[in-house]
């Protein structure tokens, strides 16, 4: 399964606000399938790393408590026009994803 990752960079006070949206089920492992009654296995993003021009700016730890299709926001300081912001994530089933955006 591939999950779409989208990123948006907004210019705000004292830096750039980076918002990252991943289409991901974020299953807790507690839910059951209504038809079969079988437990749906846990499936969630564990780590999300934000980089500015290749150096790590923030590393987020996620778990089952984060909503489906997580929208994670951080603030990046000192980014200039043309700089590259990159996000990568990894989930508990070893799947990965990410995207890159250029600061306007």
């Amino acid at each position: 399964m591939a999950f779409t990752t989208k990123m948006k960079v907004k210019t705000g006070e004292g830096g750039h606000e980076v918002l990252c949206l991943v289409k991901h089920p974020m299953e807790t492992g507690l839910r059951k399938d209504r038809k079969t009654g079988e437990a749906i296995p846990a499936h969630y993003i564990e780590i999300m790393t934000f980089k500015l021009n290749g150096s790590t700016v923030a590393e987020a730890v996620l778990g089952q408590g984060v909503s489906k299709d997580p929208l994670i926001g951080i603030n990046v300081k000192g980014a200039k026009s043309g700089d590259k912001i990159n996000v990568e994530w990894k989930d508990n089933m070893g799947e990965t994803g990410g995207t890159e955006a250029t600061v306007k």
Partner: peptide, 15 residues
């Protein structure tokens, strides 16, 4: 979230 003082501002949002 782990921040890098100087490189990231004090903001974290999630659902």
């Amino acid at each position: 979230v782990n921040l890098q003082p100087g490189a990231s501002g004090g903001l974290y949002s999630a659902r």
